[in-house]
Design a protein around this nucleic acid. Structure first.
Lengths: 203, 203
DNA sequence: TAGAGTACTGTTTATAAAAACAGTATCCGT
DNA sequence: ACGGATACTGTTTTTATAAACAGTACTCTA
């Protein structure tokens, strides 16, 4: 769609507000009043411009005959990060595979994004390869929580155990080894806490 | 809200269709035309009755001044069955704890309802106590699939292995034992197939 | 520098649509 | 058997609204 001018955007917002609040689109005169224009004709031409640009459709000879075409985008849901690229912050657009709508009422804690698990290092915690983790963004975490952590540009999901100045990132699988981080020397960056798990395929 | 007469329901549906399809409510004359009534006055009185009953709101002196109050109920989501009562079919209203909206695009196979897991018998399949299973309703299942099965009014989640006339329901935890069902003698009723897992709390 | 598009004011005209008026008939509960 | 609600037909009046007409001014772009 062609870009809208500020005025056109203002009018479009006005129409959207009306539809949302009143249940039907405004008349041309109502738009004129709302945006502070004294003549309906100016608004009319703007509407025609909006119609040309594909934002709305005008139904001739119908009162309030304005149809919104690009309706206000609904809640896209949580971004799903499929593969973590080394050395890049999470949640950049390039890493978002898609968005998933999840009823927030479902999870005890609110999630901010989804992260696809790679590997079986958390198997015994019921987290398998390919599972989606519901992550709540947090800079800090308590001992015992399963966290998304970054050490030297490597992102990993492990159970955190804090012991003074040493942080242990424990896998939940005896085939993997514990990572110990000396907080005095190395930086441990908590990206978030795992608040839910979703397995999208079974078998 | 007071119950609507058939005619009133018809008019309400007509208004809803218009809002959905056109983007704005119909005029009284349009309703009259749509439901096959030759005079606008009859429709007007019906609208007033609908307003009295709280289904719509009429905005005086405004064209298409009809506001839908009880908007078409949105997708409530999948029913969540918390506790399976012995001897009762699943999905009776009494067993539905609540409804959860889940983006259907998330799961490989479409789910019909959610079932809360009790116990650790499927632990090694990454299904823990309290997890929600996304279940697709099916009467039949293949070997290897994790199914919701009913034997003698007991509902259980296990991995199905078919071997001729014997069906094995295998737990994924060595602490539990395999259930063998002789299909010639006993009835094995498949309630559905597990197509996803959701863990709503971690730790 | 000419033309297309934006961004208006202000007025008039035609029509779309709500509202009111004057009726009729049926059904339901008390 | 009576009032009240439903469920209309048919016509008239008033108002709300779209649409057209006649302008002005500014900003781009080709």
């Amino acid at each position: 769609m062609k870009p809208l001018t500020a005025r056109q955007q203002e009018i479009l917002d006005c129409i959207r507000r009306s539809v949302e609040k009143e249940g039907f689109p405004p008349t041309i005169a109502e738009i004129a009043l709302a945006i502070g224009v004294s003549s309906p004709h100016g608004v009319r031409e703007q509407l025609r411009a909006l119609a040309r640009k594909g934002a709305i459709e005008l139904i001739p000879s119908a009162s309030r005959g304005i149809r919104l075409l690009a309706k206000a985008e609904e809640n896209p849901g949580l971004p799903l990060i499929g593969k973590v690229a080394a050395g890049r912050p999470l949640m950049t657009d390039a890493q978002v595979e898609r968005h998933c709508r999840l009823g927030p009422e479902l999870f005890e804690h609110k999630g901010d994004y989804l992260l696809r698990v790679q590997g079986m290092s958390m198997r015994d915690a019921g987290i398998l390869d390919g599972d989606l983790l519901v992550i709540q963004r947090e800079q800090e975490a308590r001992s015992g929580q399963i966290v998304v952590a970054r050490i030297d540009d490597e992102v990993t999901v492990k159970r955190l155990q804090l012991d003074g100045a040493i942080a242990y990132l424990e896998p939940a699988n005896p085939e993997f080894s514990v990572i110990a981080v000396d907080l005095g020397r190395q930086q441990l960056c908590i990206e978030g806490i795992v608040v839910g798990v979703i397995r999208t395929r079974v078998d």
